[in-house]
Nucleic acid binder design. Structure first.
Lengths: 177, 177
DNA sequence: AGATTATGTCAGTACTATTGACGTAATTTC
DNA sequence: GAAATTACGTCAATAGTACTGACATAATCT
């Protein structure tokens, strides 16, 4: 099994480090940080028979109540078919409700129920605790620094999807002007 | 379809914000940042018929040449069966080679080939560019701040897996003393 | 009336992951 | 030296999340 016949390449024994100025340290840290960050809610979700997809839908429905199916697809960057099953389960279990769009009756505006809001909060709580602990541990007094870095990591053309201050989307939600 | 009969919960129309002091802003930013961060290499991987799992294996084999299968499983937090197919493909395509462990011949030490190293670099390049651009855009002069924050986001008991300075793991690799 | 839009749904597929079971070879323990 | 343990590989079955393509319905726009 260890034979490397048939012209296999020779093993490279030196670790990749900063060749070509690649920032492997932060690349790797992002992997570890995100891995553990998402592991928090995963255990709660398992109790409901839900997965990460449910979490993401629930999160954005709570953050932007009244968003339409099309808007949700755009934020999540998934297809209609992928969303269908997940959204249906959330509606069947009374975490999310659909309302006919007032202006356009074809649209379905999505809203959380009290149950859906409670679950969203329960899922966010351990994640928020982790963030606050991390800010404290790393001695970063200005959380703005982390916010700015993360925002700058997002594709420029997609930054419109973000509402950092949660102020832009208080009254009416989307694309109003 | 918009009937909410059978005792459905009432829609909540106010956006979740900072109730209970939950840090929704950073929670959401982490989602967006990671979504776009991983989208970079995905396109390159598609050309090889590979997925994110291949990328992760390739990354760690390059970062810690000579790690064993068991160590890799521990870092990735997946099962042997999940790794099997992915690793086999990387070996068959001559990106990774296995060598018999010198001390323990049951072990398979994993090393990148020149081909595997080249691919790892190609995958890391756009991610590194994004990170540097983000550090610049956000006006963070000290990259240490971001590193410290991300490291603090990782579960304390798992921080041993990280080698930030890529200095800890130069000569001998893993689990010494 | 006809085209377009928003949504839902069906069929088929792919990738990544899971658990459980079993086999083999090497090492360790007694 | 025999027995137990360890490291790895593999087979079978299953689940969650995603994909493409196609089609249907209702509402709106032209």
């Amino acid at each position: 099994m260890t034979d490397r016949s048939h012209a296999a390449g020779k093993p490279i024994r030196t670790a990749i480090s900063d060749e070509d100025g690649i920032d492997f340290a932060i690349i790797e840290l992002l992997f570890f940080a995100y891995r553990d960050f998402t592991s928090d809610p995963d255990q709660i979700l398992a109790d409901y028979g839900f997965g990460r997809a449910h979490h993401r839908v629930l999160h954005f429905v709570n953050r932007r109540p009244g968003l339409t199916v099309a808007e949700l697809l755009d934020v999540l960057k998934i297809t209609k078919q992928s969303l269908a099953r997940v959204l249906k389960q959330l509606i069947d279990t009374d975490h999310v409700v659909q309302l006919q769009g007032p202006r356009d009756r074809r649209q379905r505006e999505l809203y959380p129920t009290a149950k859906g809001r409670a679950l969203a909060l329960a899922l966010a709580r351990p994640q928020s605790r982790r963030i606050h602990a991390a800010l404290g541990d790393s001695g970063i007094t200005e959380r703005t620094l982390v916010e700015r870095f993360l925002e700058a990591m997002v594709n420029p053309e997609l930054r419109a999807q973000i509402d950092v201050g949660s102020a832009k989307m208080s009254g009416k939600s989307h694309g109003e002007h």
